[in-house]
Design a protein around this nucleic acid. Structure first.
Lengths: 192, 192
DNA sequence: CCTTTCGCATACCGTCGGTATGTGAAAGCT
DNA sequence: AGCTTTCACATACCGACGGTATGCGAAAGG
């Protein structure tokens, strides 16, 4: 195996195990020794690939965010109508964020570990980006009223984040459907 | 000074400095030695009053939550009309949560330190409680459509939390007004 | 074949959360 | 009043964890 291959393999293994452990136990509860033991390397390897523990988390978060962003975009793009794209994208985000593993990394530890500012930048670069883009298009097309986009985007983003967190712990089997219904009503109210 | 007085005084001082430091630097970045040095006691005192670091944070969070809850309730109760109470309460929460010190403790570190479940329980006991109560009254009064309350409450709660976080870092001076306007439109859409 | 690179291991350190134990003053008892 | 008990801390200490400095051996380059 070449050195580049070996390097890539180790890095991926570190990311895999980190993600698994961070998702399962939370950033603070996971020690670096746990991670390197699970991978079968030492801390030397870890610090060769990442500057510190937060850099490792950053890489994991970027991976998670990109996955969610892709899922949202893919679902939205499947719809031909702009409005339907918007609604489908929102529902897709809610569904994707329902995974507790995604939540712990993306919604719980993300802001606490990196600080809200950097976390926001991550979100803006991936899933939230699609939201503002969609809102912009809908306003340009005259489908929803012309208004400042940023406040609306944050209200909607926060609504979906929190709803997703709640869904994960809700015992009610109809909760997802109820939430999607409430969200849809909320979105519908934006149409002119 | 009696022993009970001394005890109470030390406890309050620990809570004061903890809250200050947690708000300023974040839970993870604050060491217990920082806190006890600032107060002028030792770790012995701290561990005499609190089981561990998370218990200290819990006490601080409870204090913050109760303050916010009181402010929201007070503002809402000043309005005679149920619908106006609802809107005023939401705006009051947004205003109260605009304080970065409140945010760091209540919205950023809260879920990460205690886990989302326990954090939810705290929120439910204070500020979110007022939201569900208000929604229940509005539905009973026929002012908004009859629908599951919990999903709606979480959507709104999340929307306001995220909006507040965004407002704190937004340089735009009109952001608060824009956000309140967008929130008001969102709330208005609930009316039958 | 010799040198350089580099991916990783080993060994070690400071700090932090947490604990076990000591102590002196206030509170209760007779 | 004097003796005992309680208790609000202080002191001393420990293990674990994040982080670093250094060594090493195999692949890459000439």
């Amino acid at each position: 195996m070449s050195r580049a291959e070996q390097r890539e393999q180790t890095r991926r293994a570190l990311l895999r195990e980190s993600r698994r452990l961070f998702a399962a136990e939370g950033y603070g509860a996971v020690g670096l020794s746990q991670i390197v033991n699970a991978v079968g390397v030492t801390k030397g390897a870890l610090y060769h690939h990442f500057d510190d523990k937060t850099a490792l988390f950053r890489a994991v978060l970027a991976q998670v965010q990109e996955e969610v962003g892709r899922r949202v975009a893919a679902t939205a793009d499947a719809e031909p109508d702009p409005w339907d794209q918007f609604v489908a994208g929102c529902h897709a985000f809610l569904t994707a964020s329902a995974d507790p593993a995604i939540q712990r990394i993306m919604l719980i530890d993300g802001p606490a570990v990196l600080g809200w500012n950097e976390w926001r930048a991550f979100d803006e670069a991936t899933s939230a980006r699609h939201l503002t883009d969609a809102l912009t298009r809908l306003i340009e097309a005259g489908i929803i009223a012309r208004q400042p986009i940023a406040p609306l985007a944050h209200l909607l983003s926060g609504a979906m984040n929190e709803a997703a967190l709640w869904l994960a712990t809700s015992a009610d089997p109809g909760a997802l459907a109820d939430t999607k219904a409430a969200l849809t009503r909320m979105l519908e109210s934006l149409r002119t």
